[in-house]
């Protein structure tokens, strides 16, 4: 369970207040869709959830642990995060290394890394790009790669900021089914920011609207 308790947040440079006393709970074993207008603060909320931004007041508690005292590595073990802009999270020299990056750090045995990375590459239809430079992929392919790299780590919670942008209809459906499997198979808690009513009504069991 991720609890957001009375959070206040203002961007320091622009003094733009996004949240004042905002509270919400995201459960495990559930896909929650988060919607709202452009600029409503969806991305801001998601960055608060994973500690990239820190609240001015209030707290965020994941499974009973306040993330205020955790560093990003520790939070990353509980929550996987996919950025809205895939360019900002691909930093390896090849597509394969991008997916294997986190697995290496987890110090898994080599054959397990190989097997897991290959599995996720094929799951997202990226096997043919295995040795390509991530920067050269198309937007939708980058998005899939970013998803593969984060989902391969198998965190209990996933925060996905508009994961369907740039994906074709077939890939969207595949992603939806995959998320549904993660929920039913592993009891993942998935927070899905999306503008697509169709996608959220198809796969999410709960819907949160962020008002400006």
């Amino acid at each position: 369970m991720i609890e957001v308790n009375n959070v206040a947040f203002t961007y320091p440079h622009t003094k733009k207040q996004i949240f004042s006393n905002y509270s919400i709970v995201f459960e495990r074993n559930e896909i929650t869709a988060v919607t709202g207008n452009n600029g409503a603060g969806k991305t801001t909320l998601s960055k608060l959830l994973v500690g990239i931004l820190r609240p001015d007041a209030g707290s965020i508690v994941i499974d009973g642990a306040d993330i205020g005292r955790m560093d990003l590595c520790a939070i990353g073990k509980k929550v996987g995060y996919v950025f809205q802009n895939p360019d900002r999270q691909l930093f390896n020299d090849t597509v394969y290394n991008e997916v294997a990056f986190g697995l290496y750090i987890m110090k898994l045995p080599n054959d397990e890394i190989e097997q897991k990375a290959s599995h996720y590459l094929s799951l997202f239809g990226l096997t043919q790009y295995r040795d390509a430079f991530p920067g050269k992929l198309s937007h939708g392919e980058k998005q899939r790669l970013a998803l593969a790299a984060v989902l391969a780590l198998g965190a209990d919670y996933l925060v996905l900021d508009e994961p369907t942008t740039g994906l074709d209809i077939r890939r969207q459906r595949e992603l939806g089914n995959l998320l549904e499997n993660l929920r039913s198979g592993h009891g993942c808690g998935i927070i899905l920011i999306t503008h697509s009513n169709e996608f959220s009504s198809c796969y999410a069991s709960k819907r949160v609207v962020i008002a400006q």
Partner: peptide
């Protein structure tokens, strides 16, 4: 953002030694 993405995927930057830190940062410059 890139630094945060790498840390969320497990990269230790704050607690790592100098050599590992340099390696981590040079990776992120790409």
């Amino acid at each position: 953002d890139v630094l945060c993405a790498a840390q969320l995927r497990g990269l230790q930057i704050k607690k790592a030694g100098l050599k590992r830190q340099v390696g981590a940062y040079s990776k992120i410059i790409i």
